[in-house]
Design a protein around this nucleic acid. Structure first.
Length: 285
RNA sequence: AGGGGCAUAGUUCAAGGGUAGAAUAGCGGUCUCCAAAACCGUUGAUGGGCGUUCGAAUCGCUCUGCCCCUG
């Protein structure tokens, strides 16, 4: 794990070879087959150096969640376990990593119709205020815990309350699930300045690699959740005439920096072990 | 060399002599099924010196730096 652009892909190949392990991707965007340049999918060459899972394995046309990832990843791990001593998971999606390592508590199956209805209600300020009050009544515990301004959280909590008839917090166990394997987390990091420089460079490289063409191709699907992604959404807005090309590039860089910052915050407590034996050898081919 | 203009936050720009603001960048944080998402919080400046004034970003002098014009 580590922030975007820190160098996970290159490092993962070295470690995979060392451990004789496949690479199980844990990046919430690289799983989509329609997204390539904009999510820095490993190259064909890199992918050929180890068996990869969850790369280009799903479609943007089907909503995918951390819960889905938890289920599918564990299914895969249990299948691979008998034939591997080590399994390597690589990625930067903190919530997905948590879902895998600690699990998400079981909740009533989400009701897509209900969620959509609530989300629609939350659109205007009066409707949202009603939702807030509704949550305050249905589940005061959760109401006091979450950020009342965060529509998505409020909607989700109300959704669970309504569809289950129980308060949202009732489902939260707050104890990590037992996992039948030992999990070791290795966090990669770099000096902030260096990381930001790499981000700028990567964005430039994405452009020369054809990000514009990819974005144009995906433009018709710009509303899909999977395309609410740094790199695409800024270009979509540019296509819509909201701002210039150079402004779009500037925003992509800035938003990628912010994304990296959020990742670093997410893993603030994870020890950085730069001396970790697995991080040492970076044999270049 | 002479003449003119400019100097405020990292950047761009405000502030009729009376509490120096904004945008943006930066920084910090939240997180139990859309997470590259969604949301919250926050630091920071009048170029240096002298003067006028109860009081100066604002007026005057000077130094420094940048820009323009003339030769």
């Amino acid at each position: 794990m580590g922030p975007t652009c820190v160098g996970k892909t290159a490092q993962s190949l070295a470690i995979a070879r060392l451990l004789g392990s496949p690479v199980i991707n844990c990046d919430s965007r690289q799983i989509y087959k329609e997204l390539k340049v904009g999510v820095a999918r490993p190259t064909e060459d890199e992918l050929s150096q180890a068996k990869h899972y969850f790369i280009a394995s799903h479609t943007i046309h089907q909503t995918y969640s951390a819960g889905d990832y938890e289920r599918e990843a564990w299914e895969l791990v249990l299948k691979l376990a008998p034939s591997h001593e080590y399994l390597l998971m690589v990625g930067g999606s903190g919530f997905y990593i948590d879902a895998f390592t600690e699990g998400i508590d079981h909740m009533p199956p989400s009701d897509p119709g209900l969620r959509e209805e609530l989300a629609l209600k939350a659109e205007d300020s009066e409707g949202f205020r009603n939702l807030q009050n509704q949550l305050k009544e249905l589940d005061p515990v959760t109401w006091s815990r979450i950020d009342p301004a965060n529509k998505r959280r409020v909607v989700r909590a109300v959704e669970v309350c309504l569809s289950s008839g129980k308060p949202y917090h009732y489902f939260l166990k707050h104890t990590p699930k037992k996992r039948p394997f030992e999990i070791e987390k290795i966090m990669m990091d770099r000096p902030r300045e260096e990381l930001y420089e790499r981000i700028d460079q990567r964005v430039e490289r994405m452009i020369t690699d054809g990000l514009m063409a990819e974005a144009r191709l995906l433009y018709p699907h710009k509303k899909l959740p999977a395309l609410q992604t740094v790199g695409y959404r800024e270009l979509f807005a540019h296509f819509d005439g909201e701002y210039s090309y150079s402004e779009a590039l500037r925003l992509i860089k800035r938003n990628t920096r912010r994304y990296a910052k959020r990742q670093l915050t997410y893993w603030r407590e994870v020890p950085r072990r730069e001396d970790h034996p697995l991080l040492r050898p970076v044999p270049s081919l």
